[in-house]
Simulated scan of single mutants.
Amino acid sequence: MFVKLNDRVYLNMAKITRMKIDHVEDGIRVRFYEGQEQVAKSKRFDDVQAAEAWLQELLSKI
């Protein structure tokens, strides 16, 4: 099932093997992986709670 990640990216959630909330240089992002390869990342969040809420909203569409 395809889910709209942003204006230009749709994810095939059937192929996503893991999702990771990651602290990076510019903030907090959710990263999406197919096996060992990162295939997409989310917008930047200020805190983990905002990233978790966004991810829950995204997953509720499935």
Rank of each mutant, 00 (worst) to 15 (best):
K4R: 13
D26E: 14
L58E: 09
G35Y: 03
V3F: 08
K43F: 03
D46F: 10
F2D: 00
E34M: 03
V24R: 11
G27N: 03
K4I: 08
D22H: 10
K20C: 02
I21T: 09
Q38F: 01
N12H: 09
D47M: 12
Q49R: 14
F45N: 15
F32Y: 04
K41L: 08
F45R: 12
A51W: 13
T17W: 06
G27D: 09
Q56W: 00
F32K: 03
E37P: 01
I16W: 04
V9F: 04
Y10N: 09
V48H: 15
Y10S: 02
E57G: 12
V30H: 00
V48E: 15
G35R: 08
W54Q: 04
K43H: 04
Q38S: 05
E25H: 12
Q56T: 08
I28H: 03
R44L: 15
R8D: 06
K61N: 02
V48C: 13
A53D: 15
K41A: 02
E37I: 06
D7A: 06
K15P: 01
F2V: 03
I62S: 07
V30W: 03
I21M: 01
V39K: 06
D47L: 12
A53F: 12
I62C: 12
I28C: 06
I16N: 02
L58Q: 08
M1P: 14
K43P: 00
Y33C: 00
Q49L: 11
F32M: 00
E57V: 08
R29W: 10
R44Q: 12
M1F: 12
L11G: 07
